[in-house]
Amino acid sequence: MTLIVIQKGFASSVQDLGRCGYQRYGMIVGGAMDQPSAKLANWLTGNHESAAVIEFSFLGPSILFTEDTLFALTGAVCRPTLDGNSIGTGRPCLARAGQILVIGGMVYGSRGYLSVAGGVDTPLWFGSRSTYEKAGRGGFEGRLLKEHDRVPVGKPSEEMSRVMAGLAGSKRQTVRWSALPRRKYQETQTIRVMPDTLWPRFSAASREAFLKTEYQITPSSDRMGFRLNGAELMLDNPLELYSEAVTNGSIQVPRNGQPIILMTDHQSTGGYPRIAQVASADLPLLAQLPPGSTLRFQMISSEQGEAALVRQEEELEQLHRCIRVGIVKQITGFSD
């Protein structure tokens, strides 16, 4: 079974939860920028959370289904249509063979996820299907999707086949409920950060500016990193640093004083001074902010960061349970 890409959208690629365990060899982890949304998309189509999905940015792809397919869209808010009929996001939908899904532009947020029951079934490479563009491996032929690509899809579970059979009988081809993560988008987004070891080595004025002024995400931001524009950050004294491991959310400050937040496709090591680390719980939200968005940083401790992450995962797990209930009801005919 395949999906045929009719329009590629912007930077559409196959992603899962990343390729862990090989950073010591200089490989990136990669994976979905907004991981809770990718997991959610998979749960809605009965997949394991680590199944591969299609991630798109700013402008979604258009997809032709070659067979009856159960799919779901999550992440950025958009106005998708199936053969011209508007369908919602955050819910399982049935596409009949020959139907075309048009995702279009994002109304709010930057990155969306398309999952299909059975998962995108490109070959595993080092335990992951995430696209590693620089290495030309992983995902769909190691590159972004383009028109006429035929993306392979796995076989849906028995349970999902029954959901599909049920939806095939309904006019709407979808369920009445939807499941979306709780997120608070604001005009100026507050992003929680934790101090890096070098925090005290930045000048008092820089530390104050970092926490009291706004930073804007510039257009030269991508899956590797978000380049920010705002008050210059300076060390008290220049430091000679050796390259060392960095991670998602590391905020590096090159010599021009403008911070860069490392995102999913960041290199495994870096040699710039780091001022702070973005709390892991705020990374999915950050990943959704388009260029031009303004940020304000709020300092928390790494213990608070961990607590926020654990809480977020618990909430997500609750959402997962609700989806399970919704799917079971769908099969047993209690709803819709």
Partner: peptide
């Protein structure tokens, strides 16, 4: 435990807190 990454003077250990 997820993975570790050695560098010149240190090694970073990544883990899943949950």
């Amino acid at each position: 435990f997820i993975e570790y990454v050695p560098a010149y003077t240190n090694v970073v250990f990544y883990y899943n807190p949950t």
